[in-house]
Design a protein around this nucleic acid. Sequence first.
DNA 1: CACGCTAACTGTTATAGAACTCTTGGATAG
DNA 2: CTATCCAAGAGTTCTATAACAGTTAGCGTG
Lengths: 250, 250
Amino acid sequence: MTTDAGHEARYRAIAADLAAKIRSGHYAPGAALPPQRELSASYGVTLMTLRQALRELSDAKLIVQQPGSGTFVAPPHLAYQLDSLRSLVDDLRKQGHDVRTAVAGRAVRRAPARIAAELRLRPGDTALRLERVREFAGRPAVHQVSWVRRPVADQIRDRDFTAVSLYTALADAGVTVARASEVVRPGLLDPAAARHLHEPQGSPVLVSTRITYTLDATPVVSDHATILGSMMEIRTERAATGLSLTWVAT
Amino acid sequence: MTTDAGHEARYRAIAADLAAKIRSGHYAPGAALPPQRELSASYGVTLMTLRQALRELSDAKLIVQQPGSGTFVAPPHLAYQLDSLRSLVDDLRKQGHDVRTAVAGRAVRRAPARIAAELRLRPGDTALRLERVREFAGRPAVHQVSWVRRPVADQIRDRDFTAVSLYTALADAGVTVARASEVVRPGLLDPAAARHLHEPQGSPVLVSTRITYTLDATPVVSDHATILGSMMEIRTERAATGLSLTWVAT
DNA sequence: CACGCTAACTGTTATAGAACTCTTGGATAG
DNA sequence: CTATCCAAGAGTTCTATAACAGTTAGCGTG
């Protein structure tokens, strides 16, 4: 046959397999992967197909390819901070802040059009809606509405989200997140969020819209957060070697 | 021959050509590109090669590919991404946007306390103050006040900052920028900036405070920018071990 | 006239083979 | 013993061909 046998594209399956081997430590950080020709032979695919799998991993920054030299698992110092996908709240926790989470709503329901489009659902499909309020220094600081795609949602819907982060729950359910795309805009506090955040309407806020994808490019979580400007700011560090972005409490 | 003839890979040349045609309006936003098979024929390359060119454009968010339907030029607000050590405006320019700069003030004067602290000046030291307004799509979008440290400032004070970016001027003066640290907060448009930006006071804005350092960790530039929320947003792409950050025009 | 199916598109995934460039380490010449 | 060259091996780019899968317009049929 020429294309996939079962359901998923061949190259995605290979990428997933290699990713698993990297995360399990079978291929250690910094170590070289077998040559492309060798891998393609052992998977029984063409070089082109194997390379397409490697490109997936490269996009996810799991490997680094060096012409003439080899393909390497992302260097240790990077591999150990696999938490670059961490959430805003994880950022704060890491800084030693005590963040409390209150769950204001949890239900499976029809996704609105905008969410359905983001998660690539068919119109009318249901998804898990999770509404949380993050308290911080004794005051509510972030209002967050997350939608989780269906096959995954059923596995995590009964977790206690006051104690477990959404990303931890996803990981426990065997979902590996590979990539996230986030857009941050300034805005004014709207009435709905104002109720939860105990601040006057019209206060300056940051509105963050974030979509998280698995390795096979399926969107799993759509996240919409309203962040009080009086309590939070974004900090970035740029250097030739890289870039970091952190949410910081003020 | 099999690979490139001149210098650059064939698919990159094709990608660059198509990107130019998109930016020039030859292919309008929303319009469909010719089918892949047609394009590959007209460029005289294989379908695979042409597709590799399209992938470049797709990664840059210049096009959207829809199976079965066609390849379309992305709407402008979806477009472009790039991360760099450079300024917000360089980001936009590099992406092909037409950004105009007006210099509203340029003078060597005593640095206020906050600036002096950021640049590690002794109290009373003077520095170059540069006030600029960035116009974008015909409307002012960013109000920016930069302070440049003294030894360097004297070398660049006579440059024409409507045509040359501050970072280019620094590079020309032999100053290599190694690191930048930036803090972004939401805010409301204040009266001073409102005058330059022609927007009502109280509009949502992003306030960016940025300090740029040389290789020897000396702070050279302190930058304070007010960015209209209606025109700009921050986009981040996160992968397992990497992160990119872009300012995007809306 | 409305419905359903087909056919002709579109992008996508795969095969097999070849020649290219960049890096590295070992052999050889000084 | 050092320096240079070169060949083996790595990733990269490309040709040529084929089949798969989603989309849509149009042609019939009821």
